[in-house]
Computed example of a mutant assay.
Amino acid sequence: MLIGVPLETAAGETRVSVTAETAKKLKAQGHTVRVQSGAGVAASVTDAAYAAAGAEIVDRAGAFGCELVLKVRGPDADELSLMKPGTVLVGMLNPFDRDGLARLAAAGLTSFALEAAPRTTRAQSMDVLSSQANIAGYKAVMIAANAYQRLFPMLMTAAGTIKAARVVILGVGVAGLQAIATAKRLGAVIEASDVRPSVKEQVESLGAKFIDVPYETAEEREAAEGVGGYARPMPQSWLDRQKVEVAKRVAQADVVISTALIPGRPAPVLITEDMVKSMKPGSVIVDMAAGRGPAGTDGNCPLTEAGKTVVKHGVTIVGETNLPALVAADASALYARNVLDFLKLVLSKDGTFQIPADDDIVAACLMTQGGQVKRS
């Protein structure tokens, strides 16, 4: 199979879909890998490293002109024009972007969105959401530590004692758990909140305190369990009680990291302007949902500005929209391995492309084929 690896051109995107490590493995399987010159430079993978792994260094047209194109982000209109009908595209294509999928279908592409892989044991090795969220959670804490003008750990010195920073994590998925672990390693005192009671043990196992909000109805309890590893929207009665509890913790916090996202829906507002006003001067909020909030807001906080770091009411609010791209080398390494594991499902031993009809992972990821959008 002729496999193309183009340079990502989306603003701020530094990751690459194939590293020298995975290029070598694809080459060993009998495939020809063509990498656009400079595609991996921002992720610390040079053209020389690709060439040493057996890949061919080509121009932009050469990378997009292959039978199988591997990307990080979905192609723009200009990139689509470089791909021939029948090309197979694999990447993070946003399965909830109906217009984007329609454009892929109109271009005649067979496309797979890796974010749509089911949350099953078998699909773990190709779970791009988890691999990238893990890195994002780490980076969010490092950014917070850099923006916070005090230390995270408690220090007892001859000049006096410095108290440990109080960190509140809102949303305890993969990113939230990694944020807890990272903040704990830095010596912070941590509290965490989530709508799923099942994560309480995970939170406590990492050394944080879970902000418990009791469930008063069967409806609340059922919604809290979530579906397929994702949270479901909670009843308003529970949300109202949770806001009260979270507001108390946020007012006392030095750092708040919000990670709450619901697939296919706007990110919920968890940190209101009044809550920001209640925080101490010099506190920091890292809004990991920046750019994905409901109409009129940019994230879990209505004061967040996507792609910017701003100071509101004395609080620094970080609105980075692509945290994994700030750790491009490791983010690319994990993403490339996710891609490689997915390709094992659609590339036969003789190197030809196939769509196994009975494979639930392939079926879930298949977005477009034969000019039609497959996702309902």
Rank of each mutant, 00 (worst) to 15 (best):
V246H: 01
A43I: 14
Q242H: 12
L101T: 13
V311N: 05
I257W: 00
R249K: 14
L343H: 13
V16E: 00
D99F: 12
L345G: 05
T22W: 13
A133H: 08
A247P: 03
V69Y: 03
G187F: 08
A325H: 10
G176T: 12
K139T: 11
T161N: 10
M156L: 11
K349T: 13
E305F: 10
M279N: 02
A192S: 06
Y50D: 00
T120N: 05
I262Y: 12
V269W: 00
V141F: 04
V16W: 03
G228P: 12
Q124Y: 14
A49F: 08
Q178M: 15
A181M: 15
F152M: 11
T304C: 02
D76T: 14
G296I: 11
G371K: 06
V256D: 00
L109Y: 12
S237M: 11
E225V: 10
D358N: 07
D298H: 12
V16N: 00
H31L: 09
P214I: 11
D359T: 05
K24G: 03
V195Q: 02
M154P: 15
S125C: 06
L343A: 07
A52Q: 15
V373E: 01
D298K: 12
R221N: 09
A117C: 10
D298A: 10
G207H: 01
S198R: 09
R232Q: 09
D59G: 08
S376T: 11
V327C: 06
Q132P: 06
A295T: 09
L206F: 11
L345R: 06
E79F: 05
Q252S: 13
L114T: 00
V172P: 02
L89F: 07
L80M: 11
K71V: 09
G293Y: 00
D330K: 09
Q178R: 10
E204G: 08
F353R: 10
L109Q: 03
V255T: 02
S130G: 14
T22P: 08
R241I: 06
M83R: 03
V69L: 05
N134M: 14
W238E: 01
L239I: 12
Q202A: 07
G299P: 05
T182H: 02
A165G: 15
D59A: 04
A289G: 07
Q36P: 04
N134A: 06
D274T: 10
V276Q: 03
F152D: 02
N146W: 14
P153V: 07
E115F: 13
G108F: 04
M83K: 03
T304E: 00
E273Y: 10
K24P: 14
G282Y: 07
T120A: 14
L270G: 04
A325G: 13
I3E: 00
